[in-house]
Design a binder for these strands. Structure first.
Lengths: 329, 329
DNA sequence: CTGAAAGCGCTTACAG
DNA sequence: CTGAAAGCGCTTACAG
């Protein structure tokens, strides 16, 4: 492939002038510019950006670590990141970590090894989480309280509490919860919100009413059995995410229960599917796009050398009422 | 950040020895190795891979251009790419093109500008498609016939024909189609298959029975109106992808029609949702993971300098019969 | 406006 | 087993 040296030879101008013609055309005479452009055209020259990045010690690239790319919530958040990155002249590379710490580590190394200037991490932080090393400029988005570096997120506990309080306002008093994995900070925060709301409503917490899932469709589907077999069935199910809620919907249907007539179900995330499923799901919407935008803006400030004082950026959420919930008769 | 020079100074060994200790430890004495490792540890040294790539003129990175990252089919395919890339010691970067030619162009430049060694493109080729320039090592996966470079895919026309033939075998003779965008090669191939199957069954093609959608849920939802208002309604609907099929399912429900009792519906892709929706969808499953693996293997061969003779790799598909279809009474 | 030269951080053929 | 040196393809301060 042609290099800048070939363009220099072809145009009869120095390498320095060719370089300027490309990155600072206004520093070069019209004539030289024309000759350079002709040579570039003729040789099909493309600058070697690896070399350029190396020389400039700046990559203008950020990495987004995504636990699961097949998740609409993440996709929306990423589009927010991408749009603001484009504004700043940055490229976005997606690292599909598939919830594996070693894959996450690999992508973090893109920054540690200076192939990218910073990263946005979409995993909730936990004790086992891979921590970007001190020198790595990183922002956590859609994470949880307790993230030990910059974080842009909603208040998961409050969101859960609001949803459960909404169910209470509809007359529900026996409210089951399909929770996420025990050691996941999102699970914990959402469960704390659930307990808080019950307490505020003067309803005793009943351990029997909480089933642990793993955020998957099938864990929601299976969790239903537990509730259906209870002597005193709950009238509502608060699920820690949409996928489990949609699994629960299917499970309930198989058991012959009607949602929302016999039992109400709520989710968390507002995935695409929440609108498509039957019945459409009452759930919590996180401001995904805006979260991506804010996380990117914050990261660029850090990359520019700022050290923002505020480390936690809490954004508002919304409760979306659809057809999977109704008042107790 | 520490450079190899700092490690050299700290360990009292030359830069060359440090470099060897890192990449070819067997070329270095035990003692030197120990001293280097101590220095690395102390300085928290990470090699600058941009520099290394620049020096080696090899990035060990490939790019996957994804039109829509929030699509389970693509996610599965990508996991196949990633697993085989890992085996070959390559990193995978995801470029979220969101169906935009300019964003696609940007990511192709990663290869043109030598920031990656090759790319896998997941868009079906069409006249307006961005073509990787000649020097760019590229493989198309899950594309369409007529892709002007290496391609790993199923035979879309045959798959469509098989599905429609299946419907015919269930006694359906009036079969509607919700097609994709007219200029999309997947649409065209699938529609050709539809026509072919009808012809084989001796059923006249009726233009009235084809509605153009855009592969989205809502276009499937809306397309239903057309069929419901017909004097002679179709008894089955062949949809060019799952999303439109699931939209049609919802549309039919709103019109008071029961699937599959009043009308059968089929999809194409076998997304996650195809199993979750109500009723679960009869559809065509592409071997997503394997497609990703094959595409990656092919790309690595090309990167190694091979020029495989075979340019089209056609993989088998499967028809998945679920509950959205039944025989005509 | 232009060019010669230094240098970004590595790797590796060469000599010892 | 080790080191001095060249060079990968660029950019930019400096001098003219």
């Amino acid at each position: 492939m042609a290099t800048i040296r070939d363009v220099s030879r072809e145009s009869g101008l120095s390498i320095a002038t060719v370089s300027r013609a490309i990155s600072n055309p206004e520093m070069v005479s019209k004539q030289s510019l024309r000759r350079v452009n002709q040579a570039i055209e003729k040789l099909q020259y493309r600058p070697n950006l690896t070399s350029q990045k190396f020389r400039l010690q700046r990559t203008n690239t950020i990495v987004v670590l995504v636990p699961n790319i097949a998740n609409l919530f993440f996709a929306q958040l990423i589009s927010g990141v991408e749009d603001t990155a484009a504004k700043h002249g940055f490229n976005v590379l997606l690292g599909d970590t598939r919830d594996s710490a070693s894959r996450e580590q690999e992508f973090i190394q893109l920054v540690e090894t200076r192939q990218a200037d910073g990263l946005i991490q979409l995993t909730p932080h936990n004790d086992k989480a891979v921590l970007p090393i001190k020198d790595v400029k990183a922002v956590n988005a859609a994470g949880s309280a307790g993230t030990p570096y910059y974080s842009v997120r909603i208040d998961n506990e409050e969101a859960a509490a609001k949803m459960v309080t909404y169910l209470v306002s509809q007359g529900h008093r026996r409210i089951g919860m399909i929770s996420g994995l025990k050691d996941n900070l999102h699970s914990m925060a959402r469960q704390d919100g659930y307990k808080q709301a019950l307490e505020n409503a003067g309803i005793a917490f009943d351990e029997e009413l909480v089933v642990e899932g793993d955020f998957s469709f099938w864990s929601g589907f299976n969790a239903v059995k537990h509730f259906v077999n209870m002597d005193e069935q709950p009238t509502a199910l608060f699920c820690a995410n949409d996928e489990m809620a949609i699994g629960a919907l299917k499970g309930l249907k198989e058991k012959g229960l009607k949602v929302p007539d016999n039992i109400s179900v709520t989710g968390f995330d507002d995935l695409d599917m929440a609108n498509y499923c039957d019945p459409p799901l009452t759930t919590i919407r996180q401001p995904a796009v805006r979260m991506g935008e804010e996380a990117a803006e914050l990261l660029f400030r850090i990359i520019e050398g700022e050290q923002p004082k505020l480390t936690e950026y809490i954004l508002p959420f919304e409760i979306i009422i659809r057809e999977s919930t109704r008042a107790v008769k």
